[in-house]
């Protein structure tokens, strides 16, 4: 299935803007992720975006305003899947926003030694 340039959740609060350049797919997270079960929307997006292991996926959260704890579950599911596979996923967060530093900093436990999975403050 072709990757779309933009994905919006049902409440229209969360927008994922997708761009491709060479072997890198970048997903920019915008707005707020507050749905009761964001895993449904995110699962569908991740299935499309992570379908090709040869592509490096960068998820940029710098402009994300807020995410609830229910959003973290599908995120860590995809990190765990990639960690145990051969794909690549880099999470970029704002290291000048304390909430992002705390929230994404904890996800370093999913970082791989070969940096296929990495969590980077920008």
């Amino acid at each position: 299935m072709a990757i779309k340039p933009e994905y919006t959740n049902e409440t229209k609060e969360l927008i994922l803007k997708v761009s491709e350049s060479g072997d890198t797919i970048t997903i920019k997270w915008l707005g707020r992720s507050t749905e009761v079960n964001p895993g449904i929307f995110l699962g569908e997006v991740f299935d499309e975006v992570f379908s090709d292991d040869s592509k490096k996926v960068v998820m940029n959260f710098v402009e994300l305003q807020y995410m609830n704890s229910s959003t973290i579950t599908p995120l860590i599911s995809v990190l765990e899947k990639i960690k145990n596979g051969t794909g690549s996923c880099i999470l970029e967060y704002s290291d000048s926003l304390k909430w992002q530093e705390l929230s994404f900093g904890a996800l370093h436990l999913f970082k791989t030694a070969d940096n296929r999975v990495d969590i980077v403050g920008v």
Partner: peptide, 18 residues
């Protein structure tokens, strides 16, 4: 808690992550 969730030892409704 993140480890337990990623190992699927806790479902989303019982994660206590919040």
């Amino acid at each position: 808690r993140l480890k337990l969730i990623s190992a699927k030892e806790l479902g989303e409704n019982e994660s206590g992550l919040g």
